[in-house]
């Protein structure tokens, strides 16, 4: 039964836009799928290989700009960006990893944070190429959300399946060995520098593809959006941590939770505060309703604290513990 669960979920997701025709929910699901791809990429380099990256936006933005610039400068379909975006992100990842994988632990994390900022500044300053803060606007290909939905779903499924495939191969064993002990890995004949590069490039490729899809879907990007530290890089880390670091399905669950929480705050608890403000007419309530949508970062912070305290391995990593807490009688049943 258990091995059919992914298949059942996949069928449900395929039928989702047919059943639920509300464009808003379809939009949210597309965002979830994009985050599944980004989270899976982050999970490969940080979760499985242990090299925590704070610079996923560098790859995401590169992918997005590749798609956008191809359409803007050469007037070819931005969908070519899906093919080239991943490789463009790898072109950023390669020299970065080559130099910065000499650094270990927090020093690598800091270097990746710097990469994020460097890329954002380049995109802002290089106006002739990127139009700087003006951003890039392209015409969306489809009016309906449904084609985007299936493309995003395909990307998400491919990411998860690809990561699962990699982790079952020799590369997977090497990544885990590097995460657990780099010196031991070297003495076991693993070229740690090379395999950290492989891992980073897989992450960059998946994230770059997600970025290109984001460009196609949203139709507009600027450096502040796609190279954003807290909306992309930190969000990628949160998706990984909340879903479960170093688990195959963790990023998928994390993406769902994070997009939901993000939306929950953006809409002011689904319009709860707006309603309260209208009902009571108090000034305090009106200002709360106005500011709550900007408080999502605070919400993320609280969520991370709770997850680290009670589910240090994330929702997927501590699934049994979570189930045991919610349904205590089920646990007893299994024990008896």
């Amino acid at each position: 039964m258990k091995k059919f669960i992914p298949l059942i979920i996949l069928i449900v997701l395929c039928l989702f836009p047919v059943v639920i025709q509300n464009a808003y929910y379809q939009h949210l699901m597309i965002l979830v799928f994009i985050w599944v791809a980004i989270g899976s990429g982050w999970n490969v380099i940080a979760g499985f290989t242990g090299q925590v990256s704070f610079g996923d936006a560098a790859f995401f933005g590169t992918g997005a700009y590749t798609a956008g610039l191809l359409a803007h400068h050469f007037h070819i379909s931005a969908w070519w960006g899906m093919a080239f975006g991943g490789f463009a992100a790898m072109a950023v990842a390669f020299p970065f990893g080559w130099i910065c994988f000499r650094l270990r632990g927090p020093y690598f994390a800091l270097a990746s944070l710097a990469l994020n900022e460097v890329c954002r500044h380049i995109a802002t300053i290089a106006e002739p190429l990127t139009q700087g803060m003006v951003g890039i606007l392209i015409m969306p290909t489809f009016l309906s959300k449904i084609p985007y939905y299936y493309i995003a779903l395909a990307l998400a499924v491919l990411s998860v399946v690809f990561v699962q495939f990699v982790m079952k191969s020799k590369w997977g064993y090497y990544f885990l060995s590097i995460r657990e002990d780099q010196d031991a890995a070297e003495s076991m004949g693993i070229d740690t520098h090379k395999y950290k590069m492989v891992s980073l490039n897989i992450a960059a490729f998946l994230t770059g593809m997600a970025g290109a899809l984001f460009m196609n879907y949203m139709g507009f990007i600027d450096p502040e959006v796609v190279f954003s530290l807290h909306d992309i890089s930190i969000m990628a880390i949160l998706v990984g941590i909340i879903g479960g670091v170093g688990t195959i399905y963790g990023p998928a669950v994390g993406a769902l939770v994070m997009v939901a929480v993000h939306e929950f705050f953006r809409t002011g608890f689904f319009g709860l505060f707006k309603g309260l403000a209208a009902m009571t007419g108090s000034d305090a309530m009106i200002s709360v309703a106005k500011t709550i949508s900007h408080a999502h970062v605070l919400g993320f912070g609280i969520l991370v604290v709770l997850v680290i305290l009670y589910l240090p391995n994330g929702i997927v990593g501590d699934w049994d513990k979570l189930v045991g807490k919610i349904i205590p009688f089920k646990k007893k049943e299994a024990a008896s």
Binding site: K168, S169, K170, Y173, Y174, L176, S177, E180, D181, D183, A184, A185, S187, M188, G189, I190
Partner: peptide
Amino acid sequence: TFQVVKPLGRLSVLDNVIAAAFSKAKNK
């Protein structure tokens, strides 16, 4: 071997050894 042992802590004993065995093996 290391004087201060360096097990790959969160992997099973078998996976520890498989990871090392890949250095001479062609496939899984």
